[in-house]
């Protein structure tokens, strides 16, 4: 990641420790994940030990140290989605894409993850693809949904 880009993100928040999470989230928004060199640069620039930054990066679910695919699928496994068959939706997507939850497809097209409730419980089971929410899913709707993002 270009140093100038990281600089401008840090500048936006100020090099305060309390801005660390927001800075990491913005880096991830740009790069799709947290590249190691970017974290090393943030560490030097903000005078925060790298180990502390890694601790944050591995603690929060929203942050990823692994590159993600072109499209990100989050299948909701909140309680309401669970009792309406959310895990079956997840398994169907796993089978269709040939990956397990947390993995990225070989063609780098999809990263499949699960999320603990996105607050769309009335319309469960629900999945989010690239930030767009799809409600009232069924196993039969999965293939069509994935095709939209091929």
């Amino acid at each position: 990641m270009e140093v100038s880009k990281i600089d401008s993100i840090i500048e936006q928040y100020g090099a305060r420790e309390s801005a660390l999470l927001a800075i990491l989230q913005d880096i991830q928004a740009k790069e799709n994940y947290l590249p190691k060199d970017a974290l090393e640069y943030v560490s030097q620039k903000m005078h925060i030990p790298l180990v502390r930054i890694f601790r944050i990066a591995t603690f929060y679910n929203a942050l990823s140290l692994k590159p993600r695919g072109l499209h990100k699928i989050d299948v909701c496994l909140g309680t309401a989605c669970h009792v309406r068959g959310g895990s079956k939706i997840l398994e169907k997507i796993e089978r269709d894409l040939g990956v397990s939850v947390g993995e990225t497809t070989k063609d780098n097209r999809f990263t499949l993850e699960s999320v603990r409730c996105i607050g769309c419980c009335s319309l469960g089971p629900v999945a989010v693809v690239d930030g767009k929410v799809f409600g009232r899913l069924g196993q039969d709707k999965v293939s069509g949904l994935l095709k939209e993002f091929k």
Binding site: G78, A80, C81, H82, C117, G119
Partner: peptide, 12 residues
């Protein structure tokens, strides 16, 4: 930080 799965009044 409405985390309880199944509750979404704060979001709304």
């Amino acid at each position: 930080d409405e985390g309880d799965p199944g509750a979404y009044m704060d979001r709304s």
